[in-house]
Design a protein around this nucleic acid. Structure first.
Lengths: 332, 332
DNA sequence: ATCTGTAATGTAACGGATTACATAACGGAT
DNA sequence: ATCCGTTATGTAATCCGTTACATTACAGAT
């Protein structure tokens, strides 16, 4: 691979001149520039970015950390991040952790060591305190999934309020016995949605049957397992509030396999409003989150951090909205 | 941010000794090592990987290039890549192109300039010849979507044969009038599947109605649009062979909206066997591809390339298999 | 002819690590 | 006491660019 020296030698100029041509191009004789450019072409030279980045102390790359891309939800969030990033000539790379702290630490390492200028965390497996300790002084913002023990700017919806509204929606449709399919305590968003669910049920004077509160996770498989356990419980609630659309889809499918039809026999509500929820049969009633905007705003904050400012506001709660579809019907 | 020099100074040793502690740890007095480690901890030092990578001329990162993560199909392929990579201490980062050549060239730049040790291309927007010219001498393998004008090792299924078998399956179920929902000429895989479709139809002496051969793309939206156009055509085929499961799901949903039920009124076949195809209602009859294995094998090849060997074989055609589900029923 | 200011180019330090090679220290053999 | 071979540590070159600063050349002013 050719280096800048090779180019300089071939063009008969100094490395500084080559660098000038490569960058601003200020104060270079047209004739000289021509020579340099033809040398570059002849040698198929492209500058080694490791060298450049080392010197410039920036890489113009940002990392998006997430559990897995198989969760559709993230795809539009990332799109928002990307489009904001692109406007400032940043590139975005995605790293998956698969819930493995070792993999996550690996990516932290890249951040700590300047391989990336900053990161947006969509999920994290690590404890907030550990993150805080490890990432001191490194530009990071959290989005969607927020750990308060990791003090960074963040963007999210108000998960608890959204869950309250969703639960109230079910109650208003006449459902009394309502189950909750969550993802356990590990994820703040799920915890908050469960809180909202419980609060609203209690507020409405409705009992919560704990065997209908099932924590299997966000994915399709989680929905299936939770529905299986629900079926095993012997009796069925009027409705189930699921922590995600994928979970809802899994549940609906599993129930259908046992002849329990949604919404005829039971109503199911999702969360997120991913594409699947529109397309699924029945289409899934859900709570929309502004996925794209979450990503975009998070990236805006990150850019501020990278620029050395503290973004203000440094926490942003965006709006959500219930989207009525087919999977919830009024209880008759 | 602390550098190796700071650590050396604080520990009262030379940078070389610090480096030795950091790396192999050979020939360092236990007492010295202790001092160095405590200095590292005190300064919260982690080595700047730009510096290290520059010197070592490797980054131990590999790039996976793909169109968009919103296509579920890739998620398991990437998993295969990751697990193989992890065994050799490589990290995997995903770059999305969104069909934008400019974004793609951006990622190519990272490759050319040693920011990554190699790449697996799952899709590409660029012309094979351009890729070949730009990426001379850079370890790349293609998987799933293969351009023969870009001479790299590759892993894929035999798309044409798979499409032949899928079409034959439909024919054997008694369907005579069969449509094809593809993704146009841009993607080799779609082109080859269409070829297989046409070949088999001709071989079976069945006519192809061109107004039922619709190229809208791989995604859910594509399936919806294609189905709309199908409905506009005035009459309906017995069955439709879709280029992907997401496309099939979109089509099924759109048809259902117009009261055309799958498989009662029309059969729909997907391709890929992503999770959605199991879960969808009706579940989607499809052609399975060994997604994980494609990724794993591709990464194995890439590791060989990085090691300076030519992998052999340097093209790998893996098996596919029809999976019978609900969306295709016999024509009565 | 001399001086000054500007434009064009070159030289070398620098970013932060790794590592070849040099040196020092020390124990053991002669 | 001398020499040798390890072992531990240090010095400095190196990876490849960028860029502060130095130098040169030249036009225009005096």
């Amino acid at each position: 691979m050719a280096t800048i020296k090779d180019v300089a030698k071939l063009a008969g100029v100094s490395v500084a001149t080559v660098s000038r041509v490569l960058n601003q191009g200020e104060n270079v004789q047209p004739e000289t520039e021509r020579k340099v450019r033809s040398a570059i072409k002849a040698l198929r030279y492209s500058p080694n970015l490791l060298g450049r980045n080392l010197r410039r102390r920036e890489t113009r790359k940002i990392l998006v950390l997430l559990n897995t891309i198989s969760n559709q939800f993230y795809s539009r969030v990332v799109r928002g991040i990307e489009e904001c990033a692109a406007e400032q000539e940043y590139s975005v790379m995605i790293g998956m952790t698969h819930g493995d702290p070792k993999l996550e630490r690996n990516f932290l390492e890249m951040l700590k060591t300047k391989l990336m200028d900053g990161a947006v965390f969509l999920t994290s497996e690590l404890d907030g305190a550990e993150l805080a300790a490890q990432l001191q002084g490194i530009p990071v913002v959290q989005a969607c999934e927020v750990q308060s023990t990791f003090p960074t700017p963040w963007v999210s919806i108000d998960n608890r309020r959204a869950a309250c509204e969703a639960t109230r929606y079910l109650v208003e449709k006449g459902h009394r016995q309502i189950g909750f399919f969550g993802a356990g305590d590990t994820y703040g968003s799920s915890r908050q949605r469960e809180e909202g669910f419980r609060l609203t049920m209690e507020g409405a004077g409705l009992p919560i049957r704990e065997e209908w509160v099932l924590d299997e996770g966000f994915g399709v498989g989680a929905g299936i397992r939770a529905a299986e356990r629900l079926l095993e419980s012997g009796s069925l609630p009027d409705a189930v509030f699921c922590v995600s659309d994928t979970c809802a889809a899994g549940a609906i499918r599993c129930l259908a396999g046992e002849g329990v039809l949604v919404p005829r026999d039971i109503s199911v509500m999702g969360f997120d409003n991913i594409r699947l929820s529109e397309v699924f049969l029945p289409s899934i009633t859900t709570t929309w989150q502004p996925q794209y905007e979450i990503g975009y705003k998070a990236m805006e904050m990150l850019l501020r951090l990278i620029g050395g400012e503290e973004p203000s506001p440094n926490r942003l709660v965006l709006e959500h909205r219930i989207i009525e579809r087919e999977s919830v019907s009024p209880k008759n």
